[in-house]
Every structure is written in C-alpha cells, then in structure tokens.
Amino acid sequence: MDKAIEVKSLVKKFNDFVAVNDISFDVKRGEIFAFLGPNGAGKTTTIKMLTTLLHPTSGQILVNGYDPVKDQNNVRKSFGIVFQDPSLDDELTTYENMEFHGVLYGLDKKLMTNRIEELLNIVDLWDRKDSLVKTFSGGMRRRLEIARGLLHHPKVFFLDEPSLGLDPQTRTHLWNYVKDLNKKENITIFFTTHYMEEAERVAERIAVIDHGKIVAHGTLDELKKHTSTNTLEEAFLKLTGTEIREEEAGAADHLRMARRMWRRK
C-alpha cells in the first residue's frame, strides 16, 4: 500500500449544483500534496468527503486503504485535520481542548499527558495551557488546532487553508514545522492554500481544481511546463482564469450576528 489517498470518479452534488464533478487523483504515502483552486472550486467539499463529514454522491475513495463511507472508524483513526473554519471550543482552555481530543481518540492517559506537553511546547503554547481559547489570536488558535490534530499520531494530515489570516512569521514557522513533521514521522500532508509561493516551496505534487473539475496535476515543474509559465502563480492563473470568485456569505455569517445580539442581552 503505497497510496495514502486514492480518489476515483468522485462526485458531490448539493441538490442540482455539482460542487465536485468527477475527480480522480491519488496521494502517495509520505508525500506533501497541495490541492489548489479559487474560492468555491470544491476543495473543502472534497476534504469533507475524504474525512467522513460528507457522503459522496458517487465515486470511490480510499484513505489509508479504508473507505470513508463504509469503514468510518478506521478512516477517522488514521487522519488528523485542521479545518478551514475554526473548530476549537472557545470556552475551554488550551489544555482542555487537547484533552477532549485525546479522550475522544481513546488515548492512554499517561501517553496523552506526555504528548500534549510535547506538542504544546512545539507550537509554543505550553505556557498558555490554562488560558481560555477565547482570549487567543487567530495565529494561536491555528497553532493549537495543529497540535490537536497531531495528538493521536495520524498517518495523513489534512490542512484546509491553514495559513489563512496568519502573519508571515507564523506562516513560515508553521510550514517549517509541517515539513519537519513530514520528514521525521513520514506523515502524509494534504493541504490547500491561496498562497502560491507556499505551495511552490513545500509541495511535492500539486492538483489544481476549478468549478469542481481537476484542471491539472503533477509536480511543480510539470505544471509550469504544461502551461509554459515560469511560476506556479502564473500557471495557476492560466489554468483558472483571472475572473474574481465571490465568496458566499454563508449561514455562519448570519449566525455570528445573531449570536452577538443574543450575547448582548
């Protein structure tokens, strides 16, 4: 089994809208794989299907050799994830968020305690372990989410726009750490980003998705050659066009308003 992820003819429809339209690709074990595309291309939807949160409309998926539809538990044990949107409990402390995760993943108490300390030290949050997450900046939250996602020693690590809203220092730090992790523990990395220079620097292979279709995939050099361009950014724009994609204001935005008003009461 040299494939960490295998996807064949994957389709996801929301009613009549086709968000992911018959895509196929694979990710090798131990590889750093970038999944790029404009807003609304279908990246997050694909990740949700890979991670058992959404059922595919059709097609086959294997993550670490297991099927996310039929064999959810084995798939779930084998990956870690940093979601695009926040996923921490604001009312809990750093340590409590980690502990919650460890218990859900059935970790041994003693191993868990050691691993939490180790990971929080790596992401520089150990001295904030008893602070409530609601007092944290975006960068601190991201770091905590990364530490949490790694707590149970996943084989595949999904990062959906992990550098969104981070300053350049934190981003550099984050990618150095992820690269290191990939090398030392041979963890497969599957990530999305809008920063082309990040993908250029760390990804071994890249797939570009647009309007639910994979429009190109291969190594950086292959993509540049294929599009006769000199940088990934140029290749990306050539593949996906220059038209601006609106990000929809989803239910979450409305809710944020509602909650703010609720709290004021």
Partner: peptide, 18 residues
C-alpha cells in the same frame, strides 16, 4: 447544538472515531 455546528466545534467531534 446549532451553535456548535456553526462555530465549528461540532466538526471536531464528528470526525473522531466514536
């Protein structure tokens, strides 16, 4: 639960092997 869903924490529990 709706809040956990919209503010993301629900995802953390739903991808766990339980």
């Amino acid at each position: 639960l709706i809040w956990d869903r919209q503010f993301g924490f629900l995802k953390e529990t739903l991808v766990a092997p339980v």
